[in-house]
């Protein structure tokens, strides 16, 4: 690998998930983020109650992300072979956890409205 460009990185992700699924995921991520920012601005504060549920959902997001990537790449947990593999798995788990937390928080805010 001579140099890793932004374009190559995108191509790698398209390769993992397939072009269509990857861009659907990007669009979904952008939509959720925009919705999250919208409720933050609208409510002008973080609701601790919604935040609690969001936090509780984090482990589910972490596990789901790892399982998802492994299924897409014909891999299993037993394939973890060294420290760098563990870092990659943890990285995926963290991304999954944060993504899930934002999703859950946003969904509650949108569904239950501003009052709670």
């Amino acid at each position: 690998m001579e140099q890793l460009t932004f374009g190559t990185l995108i191509a790698v992700f398209e390769e993992i998930f397939g072009g269509v699924l990857f861009w659907l995921m990007v669009v979904a991520a952008v939509l959720v983020t925009v919705a999250y920012l919208y409720v933050l601005v609208r409510d002008r504060s973080v609701s601790m109650r919604k935040f609690l549920l969001a936090q509780l959902s984090m482990p589910i997001g972490a596990v789901a992300a790892v399982v998802f990537v492994q299924v897409m790449t014909h891999s299993q947990l037993r394939d973890i072979g060294g420290p760098v593999d563990l870092i990659v798995v943890l990285g995926i788990a963290v991304v999954g956890a944060i993504g899930m937390a934002i999703l859950v928080y946003t969904a509650q805010s949108l569904l239950r409205g501003k009052s709670e």
Partner: peptide, 21 residues
């Protein structure tokens, strides 16, 4: 010289993208 998952990912997913680039 270590059998790694990340090296598998290189072959399975990163290689074709790099090849195309």
């Amino acid at each position: 010289l270590e059998e790694l998952w990340i090296s598998w990912l290189m072959k399975e997913v990163a290689l074709k993208a790099t090849y195309n680039a």
